[in-house]
């Protein structure tokens, strides 16, 4: 599967294990049920660990796993199913700082929203070009809601200007 990551298209390096025996090397992606059942074994392996998390689960159940995870994959079964937006927010709020990946019906028109709630990688098909994705990532530069990364939201930007004036003792 191709990924849109760091503003370019790259190949995915992770191996999805399913129910197969565990390899001892590589970046291993397992289901949440396997993660919870084989947590002890999995965390002993000298590998990076990722989980495919179901939208019907509660984010809290991952709380104790977050330190050992390098990737969490959330799915958009259709672009109109927005549960993963809230799960992404909750996982970031729980302190997860690793890779957060969107898969499923991921379209350029929704890329901004996904980035804003904390997704940083996206599984993409050949239907859209790298150029399409880059353009989508820049499309709406302004937002009323806080944005991940270093951009300011409108409410911050609006008052940053006034604040700068206030800090100068004789301004205005």
């Amino acid at each position: 599967m191709k990924l849109f990551k760091d503003n370019q298209i790259s190949q995915d390096t992770w191996t999805e294990i399913g129910d197969d025996p565990l390899p001892a090397v590589g970046d291993l992606l397992v289901s949440y049920s396997r993660l919870s059942a084989e947590h002890a074994t999995l965390t002993q392996l000298p590998v990076r660990l990722g989980v495919i998390f179901d939208n019907a689960e509660r984010a809290e159940v991952l709380k104790d796993h977050l330190q050992s995870l390098s990737l969490i994959v959330l799915a958009f079964p259709s672009f109109g199913d927005g549960r993963a937006y809230s799960l992404a927010r909750q996982l970031r709020d729980l302190g997860y700082t690793g890779e957060l990946r969107a898969r499923g019906d991921v379209l350029p028109d929704q890329l901004q929203f996904m980035m804003q709630v904390g997704f940083d990688t996206f599984e993409v098909s050949d239907r859209f070009t790298e150029q399409d994705w880059r353009r989508a990532a820049e499309q709406i530069s302004l937002s009323y809601q806080p944005i991940t990364g270093n951009k300011q939201d409108i409410w911050q930007a609006r008052h940053a200007y006034a604040e700068a004036l206030r800090e100068q003792p004789h301004a205005g």
């Binding site: 927005g82 937006y85 929203f113 996904m114 709630v117 937002s143 009323y144 809601q145 409410w155």
Partner: peptide, 13 residues
């Protein structure tokens, strides 16, 4: 109105 405009988390309820 401002908070809910293009809210990234709540546009696909």
């Amino acid at each position: 109105r401002q908070w809910s405009s293009l809210h990234p988390e709540f546009s696909f309820l």
